[in-house]
Design a protein around this nucleic acid. Structure first.
Length: 517
RNA sequence: GAUUCCGUAGCUCAGCUGGUAGAGCAACGCCCUUUUAAGGCGUGGGUCCUGGGUUCGAGCCCCAGCGGGAUCACCA
């Protein structure tokens, strides 16, 4: 009865696969065997290393993977086996896999009961076909796992005259691809590479930091006070403590406590959560890297970022420090251009705003066609102006330095320039990808800045920071001069893999629940 | 949140001024021992996203909803 219920929800192709599975069992072949299958080679090993000269080394190979194509021609067939590294053609002859009278293994199992997507193991030898394709001649075939669903079969034809490539039946609906990433990864070439690059990007960064002697740490993701950034948090509740907790929007205040505790350098690569809108550069959970190094300032940090990004880019792109993004060549070899925020506005509007007061600035924004409202203070006006007039021009990596104090409550006041803080952001392709300060370690100044934030909150600013008394206590014990940096790892991954949507660099981007059928 | 486009077979898509649903691949059956989008002959397969409405008649028109994409806004 249970079976019947399943049956009615299946289409004809899925029914055929279920029947094939039952028939395999009838023949005495377990479609989901428990035994391990020993693999000697990956498809890629053979494709790249085999030649007639070393033929002798490839007389007994065993491979495992999904059967992705069958081309049956009577008593012999070709197929394609896809493993973790790629694909290789296989050649299956009836009398080879069925040396005895009984031809079931070929006539029934291979020709009829095996479907595209099934996992098989093969043993045989490598040869080259008349048409020149390196192929495994199968002597022994093992069913490793049955696939009950139909994979979309992507086929590519290359026109022999024009060399033009045509793709048939691409599995390209973004909705389906993100919801069923396992199918996307199986069927679409190049998807794995994105995530392999992402993984290597992170491991390269980690080993760079480790080599400098900085310590990778972990700090709470569940926080009683959501500090360190201006954003709306996710709220949850702990039952045993009967208290509200927030998913972290940043880890800055915890990492600084560790600097107070005496580490010279600490960093954390981890998930942050922000309860805000989603678009092609925002996912509710995202990966950030934050690092704090004692006895340094933001000028030192700019040099570190140049070296780090150049190093990562080279290690991901065969030693080259350039990436192509959105049709542009972006060069990550340092040094990068540096401009103060005021200089950048002057460069792209022709006007020096450094001495304007709030009223004059408001007037200037209007004259530039920047829409403003009455609640905006001086800092916010500058930020708007920058966003409208400057950001889009910053294609090559560019440091923008020295921000108005109002919007940056955790950065140290500028050593010379009144009303500014020692902060930089790194822009690439018109987008911010890194943010750094000379950290504020003066506890009295820090308390005043928090109090300013409280006033903003009282005025209704939902994103104003909350005062963290324990954090203040920690720096009252004494925090060394420190520079800190944050990098949005997803956005960096987008740059490194030439993807325009954050969903393309996340295995499982956040989605609405699937509609029930 | 706003605007806009899209949702038809397992996949990719067509479907005219409204007339009762099609193609290729995939599936099923038969033929074929070096093919490669293999080929040839034949067969089956649909909640046209959901719910209302207009109409003699809706995949198509109208309304509402669901899901997704793009652009903008918001957001370090």
């Amino acid at each position: 009865m249970k079976n019947q219920k399943i049956m009615t929800s299946l289409n004809d192709q899925e029914l055929a696969r279920l029947e094939a599975l039952n028939k395999l069992r009838e023949i005495g072949i377990e479609p989901f065997p428990a035994e391990a299958f020993e693999v000697s080679h990956l498809s890629e090993d053979i494709q790249s290393k085999w030649s007639e000269e070393v033929e002798g080394d490839y007389m007994e190979v065993s491979l495992a993977g999904r059967l992705m194509m069958k081309r049956i021609m009577g008593k012999a067939s070709f197929g394609e086996l896809q493993d973790s590294a790629g694909r290789i053609q296989i050649y299956v002859q009836r009398d080879d896999i069925c040396p005895e009278e009984d031809k079931t293994m070929y006539n029934d199992v291979f020709k009829k009961l095996l479907d595209i997507g099934d996992y098989i193991g093969i043993k045989g030898f490598v040869f080259r076909t008349r048409l020149g394709e390196i192929t495994v001649h199968v002597k022994e075939l093992t069913v490793l796992s049955k696939s009950l669903r139909v994979l979309p079969i992507v086929k590519t034809q290359i026109d022999k005259e024009t060399g033009k490539e045509t793709v048939y039946d691409a599995f390209k609906d973004p909705d389906a691809r993100y919801r069923m990433r396992y199918v996307d990864l199986t069927v679409n070439e190049g998807i794995k590479d994105i995530f392999i690059k992402r993984s290597r990007m992170i491991s390269t960064m980690r080993s760079y930091f480790d080599q400098k002697g900085w310590l990778e740490v972990e700090t709470p993701a569940l926080q009683p006070i959501h500090g360190g950034a201006a954003a709306r948090p996710f709220k949850t509740h702990h039952n045993a403590l009967d208290m509200p907790l927030y998913l972290r929007i940043a880890n800055e205040l915890y990492l600084k406590r560790l600097i107070v505790g005496g580490f010279d350098g600490v960093y954390e690569i981890g998930k942050m959560f922000r309860n805000e809108g989603m678009d092609r550069t925002h996912n509710p959970e995202f990966t950030s890297m934050e690092i704090y190094v004692a006895y340094k300032d933001y000028i030192w940090m700019m040099e570190m970022v140049e070296d780090l990004l150049e190093h990562i880019t080279r290690s991901l792109h065969d030693g080259i420090a350039e990436v192509e993004y959105d049709g542009k060549i972006i060069n990550f070899a340092g040094p990068y251009e540096r401009m103060s925020m005021y200089e950048s506005i002057e460069k792209y509007t022709g006007t020096d705003i450094s001495n304007m007061d709030e009223a004059a600035l408001g007037k200037f924004c209007k004259s530039q066609g920047v829409s403003i409202d009455a609640t905006m203070g001086r800092g916010k006006l500058i930020d708007e102006l920058f966003g409208e007039k400057v950001e889009a021009h910053l294609i090559q990596p560019t440091f923008i330095t020295d921000y108005p104090i109002e919007m940056t409550p955790l950065a140290k006041k500028h050593r010379i320039k009144e009303g500014l803080v020692e902060r930089f952001e790194l822009f690439v392709n018109g987008k911010e990808i890194a943010n750094a300060y000379t950290e504020l370690n003066d506890p009295i100044d820090q308390r005043e800045r928090f109090e300013e934030q409280l006033k903003l909150a009282a005025k209704g600013d939902e994103e104003a920071m909350v005062l963290d008394e324990d954090f203040l206590r920690s720096i009252e014990y004494g925090m060394p001069p420190t520079s800190g940096l944050g990098i949005g790892m997803d956005r960096l991954a987008m740059l490194m893999t030439n993807k325009k949507s954050i969903q393309e660099v996340l295995f499982f981007p956040q989605m609405r629940p699937e509609q029930k059928k």
